[in-house]
Design a protein around this nucleic acid. Sequence first.
DNA 1: CGCGTCATTGAGATCACTCAAAAGGAGTGG
DNA 2: CCACTCCTTTTGAGTGATCTCAATGACGCG
Lengths: 250, 250
Amino acid sequence: MPDQTTCQFEARPRRISLAGAHRSPEYCLSCGVRGRSVCSVVDDADIARLAETAVETLVLPGRCFIEEGGPATDFFNITAGTVKLFKALPDGRRQITGFAGTGHFLGLAVSDHYAFGAEALDTVRLCRFSRARMRHLLDDFPRMERRLLEEASNELVAAQNQMLLLGRKTARERVASFLLDRVQDALDPTGVVPLPMTRADIADYLGLTIETVSRTLSWLRREGMIAIGKGHAIHIAAMPRLEALASGDA
Amino acid sequence: MPDQTTCQFEARPRRISLAGAHRSPEYCLSCGVRGRSVCSVVDDADIARLAETAVETLVLPGRCFIEEGGPATDFFNITAGTVKLFKALPDGRRQITGFAGTGHFLGLAVSDHYAFGAEALDTVRLCRFSRARMRHLLDDFPRMERRLLEEASNELVAAQNQMLLLGRKTARERVASFLLDRVQDALDPTGVVPLPMTRADIADYLGLTIETVSRTLSWLRREGMIAIGKGHAIHIAAMPRLEALASGDA
DNA sequence: CGCGTCATTGAGATCACTCAAAAGGAGTGG
DNA sequence: CCACTCCTTTTGAGTGATCTCAATGACGCG
């Protein structure tokens, strides 16, 4: 079982390319994530610059690869898997500030210390950029900065939505909002929500307890709004009712 | 009395410069806010480009100048006063997502609709940039984009802190955190916190009710941690105890 | 002085939390 | 294949922090 208290780098880093003395750009060119991430703004011709800057890293489930308060040495681009971002209080209370999936960019910080921690939910693959190398990259590709600004803007909007949720919504509204966000994120029109996170993670994300999350999901099931399947998957049975609940119209 | 429900543009816009056919750059050159805002990255030589892009606007206390969900037509740079940013639910519940003061840049959004509303707390002066003009400005001054990215990063960190507060802190911890943030913001080492906002605003910011905010401030006073002065000003009497409370060490 | 708004304080209600126990699932080893 | 363990999830009962409702007090303004 992964130890949640020790937040160590248990990753296995290796260079993107293993062939030849130079790191090859083929990896980036064939990267399925490129279209969805900051990397998309770098042309094929310049991709070598990108490839030689990145280090591929694998993070095992439950492992922490960003330690809250630790020195901010790297930026990360997630190429596979899902991570949770969180902040903690000295007595152990936790708030998950977001879940970051494939294509997400992590580590934006003016300070030289990370303001949050990051832990892998499942096996996560990511590209790692040292701060110094990233700075050179941004100097050479100003379009990356624009793209990062877009991403940061989107995250700010999400953060504001989450503040509304945490500050003003009831437990039922929070869980409904969460499920809808997830189904949006999964781009699955059938209404099946994959939940790679535990009840504890959902609770820490919604500012609730495990018990309240569980009770609320049971209530949604009894009300016929969702169906709870095997293996952490939930099917949304009454989308309009759930949407009304999530937006507080109920 | 300002009507909070109608969120209209009650501002009095006028061009920055009134002298001559061309808008003069003197306004920006002598602007006391320039050093603290995105404008600082534009050299004196190029300041005319900046000046001709901005429109000075005055917003009266209690007036809304960004309507949540309305078309995102402009960006804003606050040159005087304080505004509150908020989101609302259909039934009237509100969450203030932040207070923005002099030098702050508003309106970052990828969407063409504002994700939040903004209302003046006191008389607010701001520079207004249309989206189209702003885009040209960013094309010409890439350093502005970098500066905006820094500002967005800082706001993200603040948003994450606020999520921790809203999701996991008690009422006492929230109020203590709020007072400390304010004193930090005011750069006043004497520990006097100016509070230009009402109890209702504080409550909507901290995810509490007016009554709880009031009760908690009274409790802090009884405990000797603060002194409540005239005219919405609070003096912090026991900084270390307040800090311990805010961080959850109590 | 009288009015409206904002802030404080009190009493009771409620939603979510805490504590506790049982049920469900996954992995391991006999 | 089953027994066993560990962990997660669910459900129940009671508590408590915060909310709601209500009244009073303080302040500014015409």
